[in-house]
Design a protein around this nucleic acid. Structure first.
Lengths: 198, 198
DNA sequence: GTCATAAAATGACTGCGGTCATTTTTTTGT
DNA sequence: ACAAAAAAATGACCGCAGTCATTTTATGAC
């Protein structure tokens, strides 16, 4: 029953070829037949590794999110927590924005299939979990109000990030720079708060 | 060339029948053939009114958003602006949450097709525009910091709302009540701000 | 009323995503 | 080394979304 890891790397091959074709021709213009032919396997094989065509994109999203921890490691020297988050988000957004069509389909599919497939939301939850320690650190050093929940703040910040990406994917922003500007401004506003004196 | 408005109400008929079937059987279990047969027209006719099956849902979203102004009118007696927004969002979320599957497909399609079809983002922008006057009013009465942009705050608040709906649609929250609780808490956090002393 | 023109309806057809019973390959037990 | 059992590959097949050339219906000029 020990599955030969060599065979499971066929998944990587399919993934890589599929992504290459998606970038070259656009998601909708690439058929599953095309992907499998390019890999020298039959169509059905694709579905042994990805339950839906769109699942290739979620697989991409996962691996992207797995690098969050690494990014935060690299940013740990920054004393201002808010700046670490700003930089992390800006970096992730930059990567995602490089392929707007894939971003759009990924975002769309993230919503559509997560409830069915169950596990997709885990990606976002992991993202949130990764920044909760940052917020705790911020609280400890007086950079965040003690009274607020780190978990809630994480939900808000991550939500803000995804929401901005969605807008970008949907053509709300004219270009990536506008999105980055808006993202930064929103983060700062979230940090300061909208409210005035009581 | 004056199109008889009577004919265009066929669109309403198709829309109504489609929604009824979607609610009864679920979006994916309803075929376009089924919808058109139930309306006594041929399949192709459907595509004279809606370019894609999913477009029926966006049409629904539009009419929902058109009622925002009415809601705000009814809430204008509340002196605390923040509460008006909280109540508005809670009300809208309640309606949307009543049909989770339709919400999921709508949200998904909102992202996926808006850039192609161009006009969908207008719905969200109109939503934002509707609450900007509220924020200006809040500024005037000292309930919001003068230095902040109403437009930016509107983007953040509306984004927060949609993001929470998306999470709900994706199964992030166990039930509607949890979503409402989280939505409210996030709005309050956004109002107060995450940050501590400088 | 009649004809010309444009709008709307039609349904046979196409293409692709996804399924599944069958076949091929790999693993395990002895 | 061989057979039995498990895992993986296969591709013919199906269902439905979406298209489009053709037909039907409405409009309007005279």
């Amino acid at each position: 029953m020990l599955r030969s890891a060599r065979k499971q790397q066929l998944k990587e091959t399919i993934y890589a070829k599929a992504m290459q074709l998606f970038v070259e021709k656009g998601f909708d213009r690439v058929t599953v037949d095309e992907i499998t032919s390019a890999c020298g396997v039959a169509k059905g094989t694709f579905y042994n590794y990805f339950p839906k065509k769109e699942m290739v994109l979620l697989y991409m999203g996962e691996s992207q999110m797995e690098r969050v921890a690494g990014h935060l490691e690299a940013l740990s020297r920054l004393p201002v927590i808010r700046q670490r988050i700003e930089t992390l988000f800006a970096e992730l957004a930059k990567q995602a924005a490089a392929q707007p069509e894939l971003l759009r389909v990924s975002m769309s599919e993230m919503v559509r299939s997560s409830a069915l497939l169950g596990e997709e939301m885990e990606t976002i939850k992991r993202f949130e979990k990764a920044i909760i320690p940052l917020l705790n650190e911020a609280k400890a050093s007086g950079q965040m109000q003690r009274g607020h929940s780190s978990e809630l703040a994480a939900v808000m910040l991550v939500g803000l990030y995804f929401q901005t990406l969605m807008r970008f994917a949907s053509g709300y922003y004219a270009d990536e720079e506008q999105m980055q500007t808006s993202l930064l401004a929103q983060l700062q506003l979230a940090w300061q708060g909208i409210g005035g004196e009581e």
